[in-house]
Amino acid sequence: MIKVLIVEDDPMVAELNKHYLEQVEGFALAGIVSNGAEALEFLKENEVTLILLDIFMPIVDGMELLHHIRLLDQSIDIIMITAARDSVNIQNSLRQGVVDYLVKPFQFERLYAALISYRERIQLIQDSTVLNQNEIDRRILSKGELPVGDLPKGLERDTLNRILAQAKLFPASFTTEEMAKCVGISRVSVRKYLTFLKDTGTLQGKLNYQAVGRPVTTFCYLKR
Rank of each mutant, 00 (worst) to 15 (best):
N134M: 10
D158G: 02
R121G: 06
N35Y: 09
A14P: 11
I79K: 03
L141T: 01
L197T: 07
G31I: 07
V99Q: 10
I185E: 12
R157W: 01
E177S: 15
Q107W: 00
R214L: 05
P58H: 09
I79G: 03
A84R: 15
G154M: 05
L5K: 02
V33G: 07
A28M: 03
I32G: 01
I76L: 13
A180S: 15
D137M: 12
I81R: 05
G201K: 07
I185D: 13
G213I: 02
L111Y: 06
D158T: 04
E22S: 15
L16N: 08
F42Y: 15
V88G: 00
A211Y: 09
V212W: 05
I6V: 14
H67A: 10
P215R: 11
A28Q: 14
C220G: 02
P215I: 12
Y101D: 12
A172R: 14
F106W: 05
K44P: 01
Q107L: 10
M57A: 08
Q210F: 10
G36R: 05
I185L: 13
A180P: 04
S34G: 11
Q133H: 07
I76M: 09
K206R: 13
E156V: 02
N161I: 04
P11N: 11
L124I: 14
V148F: 04
E120C: 09
G31D: 09
A37P: 01
M179C: 12
A37K: 15
T175M: 10
E8T: 13
V24Q: 06
S128G: 04
L155A: 14
I69C: 03
G201T: 04
L16E: 13
E41N: 12
M63T: 10
G149E: 14
S186G: 13
V216N: 03
D9R: 08
L164S: 02
G36K: 04
T176H: 03
M12R: 12
K206Q: 15
E8P: 13
E145A: 01
E156C: 01
V212E: 08
V60Y: 00
L155D: 13
